[in-house]
Each structure stands twice: as structure tokens, then as C-alpha cells.
């Protein structure tokens, strides 16, 4: 069973009313793998990763995460969510809690860790994202880049098997993009399994094992970064790359 992928999506279909957001998506994510999803807006890339922890429900197909079937069973969904870390475009930190409390909440409530253990873990990860000195502050007192790094630390405190990033740098001022990308690169080098939706092609080239291009709800092309950026096969990929690479 060790060769089982962490995420296996088979023939996944997703509609928003009349609009088909995902068409026949099949994707395996293996342990330690870093996947970058890119594509024009509305192509379904965010929807795809949001299906992995069922922030979106799928209409057809199968998703297995860490060997557990993501069916209608509420218990399975909550179990899976505990193993899947997620970082959002808008950070979504809890504004009424301090940075430290943000990081301690899920470990104490969900994993039943003691306050002391959770605090120690939280500080360890806050050091890893290089903002331990902000632990007692509230999210509104931090810059966007700092908030996003807290959000990464918060997700890591649950020791997830896989981390999902939904356009983590899109809401940031340009000068803060790099601090977040650096944090993600560090995380990748430590062996974390990651699926990243991003427009940062430099990050994709440097960090990804596979780059996936999506358009209109389909996976159009999958390749290693070298092949993807130098010799894309599909017309749609070429057009997209022509637009984003300058």
C-alpha cells in the first residue's frame, strides 16, 4: 500500500449549475511530489484543489485522499481535512485570535493536543516561516506577506500529509510575493507534498516536479517544467505561455 498516491482523482466532473467547472479530471499526486496547476482564470484549477478537501462537492468520479474515499460520509470528509493543509488567496486567518492562537486552535480542538504542546509546535512553525516575534499580534497588525506565512504555519501545525495552495500570492503587494514563495520553496525542499495553483511561472520552473495546464475545466497538458516551458505540445498551452511569459 506504500505506493498508493496521496491523492487519486478518477474521472472527476463538477458543475456549478449549467456551467461545467471540471471535465473528466484524473490525477494522481504521489508522496513528496510538487505539482503546479496553471491556466487562465475560470479554467477550474482552484476548483480542482478545492475538491480535494471537499470545499467543493463533486458530481461524478472518485477522489481518494491518503487511502480514504472522499464519499458523502461526513466522518471521512473531516478525517481527510485534518490531513490536508490549505492556504487561501485571502489568507483567511481568524481575526479575533492572535497569530499563536490561530496556529494552536486546530491542534488543540481537533488533535486534542495539550496547550503547551500546541504552543511549542506553533512556535516551531512560526520560526520556520520566520515570524516568531509576531506570535502575540493579531492578524490585522501584520502585512499581507506575514499573514500568508502565518496561514502556512497554521496549516503545518496539523502535520498535514499534503499542502494545497490556492493562488497564495495573488492578493499580495508585489514586494511581498517573494517572502511567501521563499517559504513555499523551503517547504518543498523539506519534502512536503504540494499542489499549488499559481501564476508564478518562476516558482513553477524552480520547484515543480510536474506542471499541469488547465483550460475550460480540462487538463490540457502535463509535463515536467523543462519540457512544459521550452517545448509545450498543445496549441492552447503555447497561447497561454505566450501571454504570461514576457
Amino acid at each position: 500500500m506504500t505506493a498508493d498516491p496521496i491523492v487519486r482523482m478518477v474521472n472527476v466532473e463538477k458543475w456549478f449549475g449549467e456551467f461545467q467547472a471540471l471535465r473528466n479530471i484524473s490525477l494522481d499526486v504521489h508522496k513528496g511530489e510538487k505539482i503546479v496547476l496553471c491556466g487562465p482564470s475560470g479554467s477550474g484549477k482552484s476548483t480542482l484543489i478545492r475538491c480535494i478537501n471537499q470545499l467543493e462537492k463533486i458530481e461524478q468520479g472518485k477522489i481518494r485522499v491518503n487511502g480514504i474515499e472522499l464519499t458523502e460520509g461526513k466522518q471521512n470528509v473531516e478525517t481527510i481535512r485534518q490531513e490536508v493543509g490549505m492556504v487561501f488567496q485571502q489568507f483567511n486567518l481568524f481575526p479575533h485570535l492572535t497569530v499563536l492562537e490561530n496556529c494552536m486552535l486546530a491542534p488543540t480542538k481537533v488533535r486534542k493536543a495539550s496547550k503547551a504542546d500546541a504552543a511549542a509546535t506553533a512556535m516551531r512553525f512560526l520560526e520556520r516561516v520566520k515570524i516568531p516575534e509576531q506570535a502575540e499580534k493579531y492578524p490585522a497588525q501584520l502585512s499581507g506577506g506575514q499573514q500568508q506565512r502565518v496561514a502556512i504555519a497554521r496549516a503545518l501545525c496539523m502535520s498535514p500529509k499534503i499542502m494545497l495552495f490556492d493562488e497564495p500570492t495573488s492578493a499580495l503587494d508585489p514586494e511581498m510575493v517573494n517572502e511567501v514563495l521563499d517559504t513555499m520553496t523551503d517547504l518543498a525542499q523539506e519534502g512536503m507534498t504540494m499542489v499549488v495553483v499559481t501564476h508564478e511561472m518562476g516558482f513553477a520552473r524552480k520547484v515543480a516536479d510536474r506542471v499541469i495546464f488547465m483550460d475550460r475545466g480540462e487538463i490540457v497538458e502535463t509535463a515536467d517544467p523543462e519540457t512544459f516551458f521550452t517545448s509545450p505540445q498543445q496549441e492552447r498551452t503555447k497561447t497561454f505561455l505566450g501571454q504570461v511569459m514576457h
Binding site: N53, L55, E78, T79, R81, Q82, V84, G85, M86, F88, Q90, N92, L93, F94, L105, A106, K109, V110, R154, A155, M158
Partner: peptide, 11 residues
């Protein structure tokens, strides 16, 4: 986003 963040953390 507050709901989504708490779902994503498994709360």
C-alpha cells in the same frame, strides 16, 4: 473564508 478556513483545518 472564515468558514472555509475552519473546514479546511478539520474543525
Amino acid at each position: 473564508g472564515q468558514f472555509e478556513a475552519s473546514w479546511a483545518l478539520g474543525l
